[in-house]
Amino acid sequence: MYVIVTYDIHTKTPAGKKRLRDAAKACLNFGQRVQNSVFELDVDPGQWASCRARLLEVINTDEDSVRFYFLGSEWKKRVEHHGTKTGYDSQGPLIF
């Protein structure tokens, strides 16, 4: 499954800054950062469950938010990109 993860973490406290780092680490374990707080994940259901659980442990629901967008198997037809930082082929080789 292809999932877009976005989050907005309140970073005015040291705890918030730590949550921001932890959220990024959780996403980087499963996908690719495409913008500062936006990640593309190409994961199986087990990986998704692990990533989702970790993110929900990290955020403070009173101050932060996280959104998940499920693009399905036809995601390549639903993603359009313009500008710098070109996308990556999640099905391609991991070594560049």
Rank of each mutant, 00 (worst) to 15 (best):
F96C: 06
S90N: 07
Y69A: 09
V58T: 01
F30T: 03
V34H: 07
P93C: 07
R67Q: 14
E74A: 11
F68T: 10
R33P: 00
D64W: 09
F70H: 15
R21H: 10
D44Q: 15
F30K: 03
R33L: 02
G46V: 14
I59E: 00
S50M: 15
D8M: 05
Y7L: 03
D89I: 06
E80W: 08
D44R: 13
Q91T: 13
G46W: 14
F30C: 08
G46M: 14
A24Y: 01
F39L: 05
V66D: 06
P93K: 11
C51H: 02
I59M: 01
V43K: 03
F68E: 10
F70D: 12
V58G: 00
R33A: 02
G83H: 04
T86A: 09
G31V: 04
A15V: 04
V43W: 00
Y69C: 07
V43M: 00
T11I: 09
R78A: 15
Y2L: 10
L94V: 10
C51M: 14
Q47C: 08
N29Y: 07
A53P: 02
A24R: 02
D22V: 01
L41Y: 00
K25Q: 12
R67M: 13
Q47T: 08
D42A: 15
E74M: 06
R67C: 12
T6K: 04
I9R: 00
D64K: 06
V58C: 02
P14Y: 01
L56Y: 05
R54W: 05
V34S: 08
A49I: 07
F70S: 13
Q91C: 15
L20E: 02
A23F: 03
I95R: 05
L20H: 04
F30A: 05
R19Y: 06
F70G: 11
A49S: 12
T84L: 10
S50W: 08
Q47P: 00
Q32G: 11
D44I: 14
S50D: 13
E80T: 08
K12S: 15
V38R: 06
I59F: 00
K17P: 00
Q47V: 02
F39I: 02
V58S: 01
G46P: 12
Y2E: 04
N60Y: 07
T13Q: 05
T86N: 10
Y88W: 12
E63C: 12
Y88C: 10
V66P: 04
G72S: 06
K12Q: 14
H82M: 07
C27Y: 01
H82S: 09
P45L: 03
R52W: 03
S90D: 07
M1R: 12
V58R: 00
P45R: 02
V34M: 11
Y2A: 09
V38H: 11
Q32T: 14
N29T: 09
L55I: 06
R52C: 07
H82R: 12
G46H: 14
D62S: 14
L20M: 05
V58M: 03
P14N: 09
T61K: 15
L94W: 10
V34K: 08
L28E: 14
